[in-house]
């Protein structure tokens, strides 16, 4: 059933069948999300700038999610010698980078009117910046070694070591006294965010992840084609 997650051939077949419906669904959800964002209420304190949240929060979540996926695939491919994980690592690292850059940029634009500064050396911000550096190094490492096996294993080990950063990002707002506000959505029982803002946020998150998924599928297929000889 979930063979397409580990096997390039079944991945190709599976992605071919779902690709067109996926694009259709994504465009519908994206348009719906944008309309919802447009009609969402203004914050009584922040005014219009609160709408940056609908880009900032989904891209932050997806930056972390991409890295988490890469970590899981690194473990799988190192432990069970499944080369598909290396393909995924190479294909989705740039996507994660783009999400991290989006998150940092939108956060910076949001921070200027709210906190009065583009950047603070706050634990959450710093750890996300380090995540960006880790992503960039992973992309660089992809261009570094001539030997393919060495390259893939080194990158996988590097991803594993870098995953120490993930819990630091997640819990930085709880462990340290930061300017960045603590999590307001993930407290499932009583999210400290109003339902009228939560709805567009969740729709936008789904839209963002679907867009990311489409790009990821395209990149993984390219990657499978380029190394057809080795598989």
């Amino acid at each position: 059933m979930f063979k397409f997650l580990l096997n390039p051939n079944s991945f190709n077949k599976f992605s071919d069948t779902i690709f067109k419906p996926l694009v259709a669904i994504t465009s519908i959800i994206l348009v719906t999300g944008l309309i919802l964002v447009y009609r969402s209420p203004l914050d009584y304190q922040q005014g219009l700038t609160v709408k940056i949240m609908y880009i900032h929060v989904p891209s932050a979540w997806l930056a972390l999610l991409t890295y988490a996926i890469m970590t899981i695939y690194s473990i799988i491919s190192l432990a069970f010698k499944i080369p598909f994980g290396f393909i995924i690592n190479k294909a989705i690292a740039p996507i994660g980078t783009v999400f991290t850059v989006l998150c940092l940029l939108s956060g910076s634009l949001w921070g200027k009117p709210m906190w009065g500064t583009w950047w603070v050396w706050d634990a959450r911000l710093t750890s996300v910046a380090i995540l960006l550096i880790i992503y960039v190094i992973i992309i660089f490492l992809n261009q570094t070694f001539e030997n393919r096996e060495v390259r893939e294993k080194t990158i996988a080990i590097f991803i594993l070591i870098g995953s120490i950063n993930l819990p630091i990002i997640k819990f930085s707002v709880d462990w340290w006294n930061t300017l960045h506000q603590p999590a307001s959505v993930s407290k499932l029982s009583s999210p400290s965010i109003d339902i009228s803002m939560l709805q567009p946020l969740l729709v936008m998150t789904v839209a963002f992840s679907l867009v990311g998924l489409i790009i990821a599928i395209l990149r993984i297929k390219v990657e499978i084609l380029t190394r057809k000889n080795y598989l």
Partner: peptide, 22 residues
């Protein structure tokens, strides 16, 4: 020792040392 395998990108070694020494 990583740089022994790497004949193109020489500063990546220093970058990694700096990153892990944080």
């Amino acid at each position: 020792s990583m740089n022994l395998l790497n004949k193109t990108n020489f500063s990546i070694g220093s970058i990694l040392v700096l990153l892990f020494s944080i």
